[in-house]
Amino acid sequence: MQTIDLYRPVGPKELKLIEDSGWKKFPPRLSEQPIFYPVMNEEYAIQIARDWNVAASGSGYVTKFAVDSGYLKKFEIQNVGGPIHNELWVPAEELEEFNSHIVGLIEVTKSFFPEEGGK
């Protein structure tokens, strides 16, 4: 099976829920969050985690995970800004199915805190 690496910037609450799953899945979306959007590259995920998650929740994390590439073909890549701002839009009601196509574990690749500027 071929896989594609995706990234997801998260705050501390979402990270705790991922950890509670055994690093195997992303938590269900809240009612005001109709889309789950993994991003296509780490640079974009870093921007969000560092510039948005830290300000919004005091820390930001970049997660990396592999997904079955055959399954991902059903999602069109969405560009939401500049050349690196590519993401997938997964409807919230399909997140459990999406989670079942994650291969291996979700890992944290970067952590950002206001006093440290990231590590």
Results as ranks from 00 to 15, higher is better:
15 L>F: 03
66 A>E: 09
82 G>M: 02
62 V>L: 05
87 E>D: 14
84 I>C: 00
4 I>R: 14
100 S>D: 09
102 I>H: 06
74 K>D: 04
59 S>A: 08
51 D>K: 15
8 R>N: 15
116 E>P: 01
65 F>M: 12
35 I>N: 11
29 R>A: 12
78 Q>G: 00
12 P>C: 04
115 E>M: 05
61 Y>M: 04
33 Q>A: 11
66 A>R: 08
57 S>K: 01
37 Y>P: 14
53 N>A: 08
96 E>P: 01
29 R>T: 07
119 K>W: 09
23 W>G: 06
41 N>S: 05
82 G>H: 02
54 V>T: 09
29 R>P: 06
78 Q>M: 13
36 F>R: 02
58 G>D: 06
39 V>H: 13
102 I>M: 04
48 I>M: 13
87 E>A: 14
80 V>H: 00
62 V>M: 03
1 M>S: 00
31 S>W: 07
83 P>V: 10
33 Q>H: 14
89 W>Y: 14
11 G>Y: 05
109 T>M: 07
5 D>K: 13
36 F>W: 07
27 P>I: 11
50 R>I: 07
18 I>L: 13
64 K>G: 03
37 Y>M: 15
89 W>Q: 15
39 V>T: 12
11 G>L: 05
35 I>K: 08
107 E>H: 15
71 Y>I: 04
40 M>I: 08
77 I>P: 07
53 N>P: 03
54 V>G: 06
80 V>D: 00
101 H>N: 13
64 K>V: 07
